[in-house]
């Protein structure tokens, strides 16, 4: 980022407009980052709870959870944003006070459903023999899951999770539709005044953000590379 600014300065391009756009987009990006990290904070554990529901031996819970996941994954996130933002006001007469909160609720619901399916895939891919080995060693169900299964699941879900999390970075822009002042909305403010390039310039921010995450996940995968299986 600074490099671009520096180059721009050396080329004599640094005018007040470029600086103003950069800072204003950065302000917008901050909203994306807030939405991104809060979504992860809540959706990562909530996803695991949904997974347990969808794998439950208690049929009604299992089918209810799977229905929920099907509905969430089968409808657009943008629609879910509208629902969370408008429905409380329309039906219960308690309008959503804070746009960011509405966005966060929709994102957490949406992403925990996706995460739960990734977790489920990971858990179901662990060979039956691992559970049986724990059983004959007299381990409890909790010990089996937390001491033996979980680490293997983590290793298996890191690649699909990194995909999903990088998608989340870009999805945060959808919050624009309920007027959360995120980066694209910030750029639009300029295009409405006839300055189009800031809209394209937002790509740089996303690329840097996603690039950083890609490096992070690569590092995690490498860390987990000490064993196979």
């Amino acid at each position: 980022m600074t490099e671009i600014l520096l180059n721009a300065a050396q080329g004599g391009f640094l005018n007040s407009e470029f600086a103003e756009v950069s800072i204003s987009l950065l302000d917008g990006l901050w909203e994306n980052i807030r939405l991104f990290s809060s979504t992860l904070l809540f959706a990562l554990p909530l996803g695991l709870i949904i997974t347990f529901g969808s794998m439950s031996k208690f049929r009604p819970l299992k089918y209810l959870t799977r229905l929920f996941v099907w509905v969430i994954r089968g409808t657009p996130l943008m629609l879910q944003l509208f629902v969370v933002f408008y429905v409380p006001g329309l039906i219960f007469n308690v309008p959503m006070q804070d746009r960011m909160t509405a966005a966060l609720i929709a994102f957490v619901i949406n992403y925990s459903a996706y995460f739960s399916e990734i977790y489920r895939g990971g858990i179901e891919s662990i060979p039956k023999g691992q559970y049986e080995a724990c059983q004959v060693l007299g381990m409890t169900k909790g010990q089996t899951f937390f001491k033996v299964i979980l680490m293997q699941v983590v290793k298996r879900v890191v690649p699909p999770m990194s995909n999903e999390i990088i998608t989340l970075v870009k999805d945060t822009s959808l919050a624009r539709v309920i007027a959360v002042s995120e980066i694209l909305m910030a750029a639009e403010r300029f295009s409405r005044k006839g300055v189009i390039w800031p809209l394209f310039y937002t790509a740089v921010y996303f690329l840097v953000f996603c690039g950083g995450l890609t490096l992070l996940f690569g590092w995690i995968e490498k860390k987990l590379d000490y064993y196979k299986g």
């Binding site: 023999g129 691992q130 049986e132 059983q135 060693l137 381990m139 001491k147 293997q152 290793k155 299986g229």
Partner: peptide, 27 residues
Amino acid sequence: ARLSVGLVFQSFNLFPQYSVLENVTLA
């Protein structure tokens, strides 16, 4: 009841993320 019997599987079923000694001592 299981604690009084041990079983060695055809396919070993070792815990891949644990070292040899950890596999032996975990339970």
